[in-house]
Design a protein around this nucleic acid. Structure first.
Lengths: 242, 242
DNA sequence: CGACAAGTTGATGTTACTCAAAAGTGGTGG
DNA sequence: CCACCACTTTTGAGTAACATCAACTTGTCG
């Protein structure tokens, strides 16, 4: 059996092939499309943690799919400051907002060991894949906007909470059963670079969440009660239409 | 003469029809395309300052063009906090990152009196208009990323400086001759909402710039020496390819 | 003139940063 | 197995940047 994916009422769940689960959860895909995704997954390239995947300004060959691991769009300043612009989770599309051939608008690095596959081309604009890619682009755009609101107007505690809520929702869409509990394979410094804080301050804020029972002891960071975060932050769902 | 636009070595300059200047500066347009833009301009709808143009979640009819005035994507929190996600300058495209029919990813408001025209459709994917729209989308995406880095890692002075540099560059692309000097029709509160600061702090920081001769006295805010800002901030050009 | 929005200024409070050091963690080679 | 190293986390003390609160000024428009 080539495509061991089953459609449930709640959607696909398969942490082995998060990209397939994520896209198929966005739009029903034809068997041939799922097959194309399976084949693409076999052509994935591996990157070790911290390695640069795309350098800003490099000519983009075309969209990709993050089949394993975490990555991030990042902006490095000459004086050493760094800001993570956008987190890429397992199953996410890469360079979906830009046209092939365009210069990359930002550097992309692997945050953990990661694998990237070329995205199967979607000839027909009305195909399931094409619509799934378009929705992926919409979602990435919303994440960027949410990131701006998060950094611009939330305090440290709220920033962490809002990020956790977003990650929980995105992981759920990628087929990771993560109702209220999941692990975050990011260092506190990566969190700080994403949230516009210092790692010291992230550490203290996480300690407070640990005291409150929202995250567990030990590493990696373990969200045990992400469900308690909802009321704390005025957040918007990532996908309004469900 | 229907289309009084002339192509110079430096590009089109026409503050009356900034959208035509901006798009034609991005990509050479055919006379028929310029004509379509002229015609679209006549069908523009006016919005008075502070009025809502698009409400978050509303179904988008299709891309638009801001033919006059300034606007902004904005996120309002229930408790009154507000964050401007993205500034829209005269000549900018609206809703170019999203597909028609999709729910608007954020509210859009007019910051000054403004006019919005429907964007002429670009049938052929290789037409000048289609390429200009694609480039507009790329630029908007880069602005969002830059906004994240700005708010996340720059201090108040740097945030203002970086925003001024970006606005200067974007105004120049829209055909406003603005080498080092231009006016900013935004209140200090709007600036604060864009930069993740309070209006009081923006006021004090602007006062410092005024003492340093970077901005002039009087209102609206008058950038007299935007050229002095370059060395102060580690910024990236908006359009790498020139 | 009066009302309202925007800008200015001062005093005070708080969040988050900086600097510094110690302790925990995981991997490597002897 | 242990010593060693690099990386990460943790904690404390002092500081700087920015927020908050409040009053006052300026400009604009009916």
């Amino acid at each position: 059996m080539r495509s061991p994916f089953m459609k449930h009422a709640v959607g696909l769940q398969n942490a082995e092939q998060p990209h397939i689960a994520r896209l198929a959860n966005l739009v029903p895909l034809a068997p041939a499309e799922i097959d194309a995704l399976v084949k693409a997954g076999r052509r994935a390239i591996s990157f070790s943690a911290r390695r640069e995947i795309v350098h800003i300004g490099a000519s983009l060959t075309g969209p990709g799919i993050l089949t394993q691991g975490w990555a991030a769009h990042v902006r490095d300043f000459r004086d050493g400051r760094r800001q993570i612009l956008h987190l890429l989770l397992p199953g996410d599309m890469i360079s979906i907002l830009q046209k092939p051939g365009a210069p990359a608008s930002s550097t992309i690095i692997a945050l953990t060991n990661a694998s990237i596959a070329p995205a199967p081309s979607a000839r027909n604009g009305e195909s399931g894949l094409a619509r799934a890619y378009a929705l992926s682009a919409d979602i990435e755009c919303m994440c960027l906007q949410r990131q701006i609101a998060r950094i611009g107007r939330l305090d440290a505690y709220e920033r962490l909470a809002d990020l956790f809520i977003e990650v929980a929702e995105r992981l759920r869409h990628a087929g990771f059963a993560a109702p209220a509990s999941f692990e975050l394979p990011l260092t506190q410094e990566m969190l700080a670079d994403s949230l516009g804080l210092t790692s010291v301050h992230v550490n203290r804020t996480l300690a407070q969440m640990r005291r409150e029972g929202i995250i567990g002891d030990g590493r990696p960071i373990n969200l045990t009660h992400a469900d308690r975060l909802g009321p704390l932050v005025d957040h918007l769902p990532l996908i309004p239409s469900g």
